[in-house]
Design a protein around this nucleic acid. Structure first.
Lengths: 232, 232
DNA sequence: CAGTGGTCTAGACCACAGC
DNA sequence: CTGTGGTCTAGACCACTGC
């Protein structure tokens, strides 16, 4: 059970980078030098370097060499869905309204459509342990094959509302996260009687051609939700 | 200017996945079949498949084949630093306090240390256009080479406070995002006179051995900051 | 010019799936 | 057993860099 040569190269170079023996900007030993050091063929060495490159540790400049990359210190990965995330989870959803509306100026601009195009509006309330914890609004462009049945809409996440009309791999998504104080209507929906902050998450879905397919806004009780992100 | 064979393989298979011709769970044509189809050697075909695998499109099971992966619909990438993010930016920081303290129960547990260990406390106020927009607290374990000079601390981000004692590639980080209402002290620091929500971002930094190195909490005026994340 | 990385081949041997 | 992917070699030719 000895690990393959290319993985030993990967591990050795990772160790040198993590221990600051190789610093950002430094050149990694040339492929020829690594061939000699490990007694390996060039393709094997290159496979190891390809792994390091795909993991963001190094990059290469043709004719010059391989170099240690500056780590992206500010990059985090976060898993978010309206109904489930790493810290909290919604156990029930109630459909408040499904309707077809004409967009106002802001919505038409957000969805990059003219104001005479119809938009599907979906409003829901999310519950945890019987308590309302979030108020959710979605605006969707109509897609072929989109679920119109209320049963299907009620517990669907945003991408699920669009598929199977749109294959999921082709979707690009964007979220914007901020805090706000609730207006009177949201206070009523979420049973808020005293001062309480909302965590607001806006979701925007684009198709493969970067055309907006839908906009979603979810207002969470601030004492209910926490989002979590990790680096690497 | 013809693109290399392995990239043509990558693009062709991506197209098939995005157009739902290949669905999650489907098998990609075998390496032998792709060799025949493109008139290429096996190593060239494998290079293309390696790219698709590293980008999350496919995975392989030895002895069985290559398969289309289910897309991670809930995964987002977010770039966050206390002082700068994609939508807003801090232009000035004021150091309120640098001190050495004994941790309370909660802080000791968070940092996984005993209560008799000293912790460095740093409190700052962030400004944009002359207005205070965020209140920032950091708790750090002392590291060799850590900057003690106030000038250096004032405008440093969390990872910068720890390096060069800790090489940046070795750091793992975690953020937790939530909304809250401000207490009296924060209202005073941030000039908040009426109802206003806070966006709170907790940062935790771990070294390569998963030992906590520091905890940071930043309280942003809700009308100031928006965090942005994108999929893919 | 020599040294670098980028692409590619035509084989090889291995371990594992499934019949 | 055949078919699959996983590792590896010893060459080749190309384009680019820098002296």
């Amino acid at each position: 059970m000895v690990s393959p040569v290319y993985l030993r190269i990967v591990e050795d170079i990772k160790k040198k980078i993590n221990s600051a023996e190789l610093k950002p900007g430094d050149t990694v030993p040339s492929e020829k030098a690594l061939c000699d050091e490990y007694g390996a063929s060039r393709m094997t060495v290159r496979k190891g370097l390809a792994v390091l490159a795909s993991e963001g540790y190094i990059y290469s400049i043709p004719g010059k060499g391989n170099f240690v990359r500056k780590p992206e210190l500010n990059k985090y990965t976060i898993y978010y869905s309206e109904l489930k995330n790493s810290i909290n989870s919604v156990d029930k959803a109630k459909l408040l309204e499904v309707n077809i509306i004409m967009p106002g100026d802001k919505l038409a601009a957000d969805l990059q459509i003219t104001k005479n195009k119809n938009v599907i509006l979906i409003r829901r309330l999310f519950y945890t342990d019987g308590e309302p914890v979030a108020y959710d609004i979605k605006y969707l462009l109509y897609q072929k094959g989109m679920p119109i049945v209320e049963k299907e809409i009620e517990h669907a996440t945003f991408p699920e509302m669009l598929s199977p009309g749109v294959p999921p791999f082709a979707l690009k998504k964007e979220i914007i996260i901020y805090a706000a104080t609730p207006g009177e209507d949201i206070k009523r929906y979420l049973n808020i009687y005293n001062e309480l902050a909302l965590l607001v998450v806006e979701q925007k879905i684009y198709n493969a051609e970067n055309k907006p397919m839908g906009l979603g806004i979810t207002y969470y009780r601030g004492d209910y939700i926490k989002l979590q992100g990790t680096s690497q």
